[in-house]
Amino acid sequence: MKLNLVHLYPDLLNLYGDRGNIMCIKKRLEWRGIECEVKEVLHGEYVNTDEADLIFLGGGSDREQEIVCEELKKNKKALIDYVENDGAMLAICGGYQLLGNYYQTKDKKIEGLGILDIYTQWEEERLVRNIIVNSDLFETPVVGYENHSGRTYIGSYKPLGKVFFGLGNTGRGDFEGVVYKNIIGTYIHGPLLPKNPQVCDYMLLKALRKKYGEDVELEKLDDEIELMANKCIVDRYSEEKNRVAEAIKRRI
């Protein structure tokens, strides 16, 4: 088997260790003897969705996101078709915001891809902290770090999960991320995938099953260190005193 991973604009969107997500996808395939080819689409280049089994769209600064938005407009239709035909895609932070109709920043409106009928509104206070989300897609909680000024309103779409600790989509601490067909959009960095191998494997399975049929299964890997790193954060915020300490720290 072989998976083609398309990494959109790594030259523009490379914040918060996002390349760790690419490394994770690549390694978790290689560790199972599955070939992975990463195609980087750089600024000014055309996105060929026919060649993609999985698309990754990361986060960047507002300035860089604006450049990306101009670029993506040229590929809008192809990307919408890709998603509607069950193409797998993972979009994080800035990339997540771009899935929607628009991102209203402090002083301008950045038009999104319109793949999902959602939108994002800028607010002064940045939402910055560790985040833990319980998702019905996985047994293990999803852990990471959020750092965003945008509040994303997903309407009636299904969220990735319920926030156990942190602030999430709108800053209210209720829900985080979005799931639609074979897309996951989320604010969670960390980077997301290495400490959440369950999310990585979910995406891989979606991509491989689309390409090779529903009976594809993934070999189990030794995730001891991954799960310990994940649990370390979950345990920390499962203790009331640590949640309180964090809240106090944020006030002073």
Binding site: Y16, G17, R19, G20, M23
Partner: peptide, 13 residues
């Protein structure tokens, strides 16, 4: 801790 940066994602850079 706060002074370290709570976000350890930079290790991946």
């Amino acid at each position: 801790e706060y002074q370290d940066g709570q976000d350890v994602s930079w290790l991946w850079d």
